[in-house]
Design a protein around this nucleic acid. Structure first.
Lengths: 155, 155
DNA sequence: TCATCTTTGACTAATATTGACTATTATTAT
DNA sequence: ATAATAATAGTCAATATTAGTCAAAGATGA
């Protein structure tokens, strides 16, 4: 069975709320208490699993009544979101982040399963197989952005 | 039945699980302990006996709660057609020839129109955008071959 | 004997967890 | 009003927990 680490469990918990709601708003310390982890682990979960590449927007506020708010967005439906995503990718993207983008497109029904998998193959580290990691990441960025722009015109 | 080395035994063990289940998920160190071998031997077994040519997909994650997951997939009937194409492509292909390959896959109903277009975006010269033409051609070859290998099975 | 396959372990890479310290915002006291 | 304090969230680096790579050494078999 998968999901042995607590970060995955927290991720699933938050996503289960987002399955029914437009957004979720939490108090960091409450979630940390709920899962018996230090508060900064919540930041870790958000930073690794609720990025724009994953199709989420996050905002927060400190101080009394502070909160963290996570919102699910569609990457290509909204031209602004797509522009932001392309800008964030810039000229380099890791395999992990690129997977997140493709996964989001699949979840948004922009790509079907087979299309998503074809793209994942094309951007996989072992496919690109270049010695230089930064070249690998920049190639991947160009491929992903090329595909995003193709999808934009298509829709 | 002679000469049962430990790699063969581990292979059989994993395959016996896969006989009843769609996939098997292990912790590398646990299996290594179980058979009294060093952890990297598990990688050796996987690399030599659970290849895509044999119909297995492998994925893994490091860090806390890490795992190795092996999945049995169904290989398609006309895999030898793909093999032939892969051989012809070799380690380098021009944009012109690659377009012809994708076109013929489309005409043979291996790919639909949308899939073909996504692939063309990924292998286009302007997408790859590398100064060195021979690098460009070898990247294109790896991407197409990766996709052809993916088409060997249904997931 | 030679080539190939297996076994081993040192080193590397990726991911997760923790906590000390910092930054921001709200509330309370003067 | 302003300053002090409380109540949040953010950052970052150290450590822990996995898996991956690679090459050397050992075993096997033609």
């Amino acid at each position: 069975m998968q999901s042995q680490n607590i970060s995955d469990i927290i991720e699933k918990y938050l996503k289960s709320i987002l399955a029914d709601a437009e957004h979720v708003e939490i108090r960091r310390s409450e979630i940390a208490d709920l899962f018996n982890v230090v508060p900064s682990q919540i930041n870790y979960v958000i930073k690794t699993r609720f990025t724009i590449q994953n199709g989420y927007l996050v905002e927060s506020k400190r101080g009394g009544g502070g909160y963290i708010r996570i919102e699910k967005v569609n990457l290509v439906d909204d031209a602004d979101v797509l522009d932001t995503l392309i800008q964030v990718i810039g000229d380099s993207i890791t395999q992990r982040d690129a997977y997140a983008v493709v996964q989001s497109l699949y979840e948004d029904d922009v790509l079907n399963r087979r299309e998503a998998q074809l793209i994942l193959v094309a951007i996989d580290r072992s496919t690109l197989d270049v010695a230089d990691r930064s070249l690998e990441n920049s190639l991947r960025a160009r491929i992903i952005i090329g595909i995003l722009n193709h999808l934009r015109y298509e829709s």
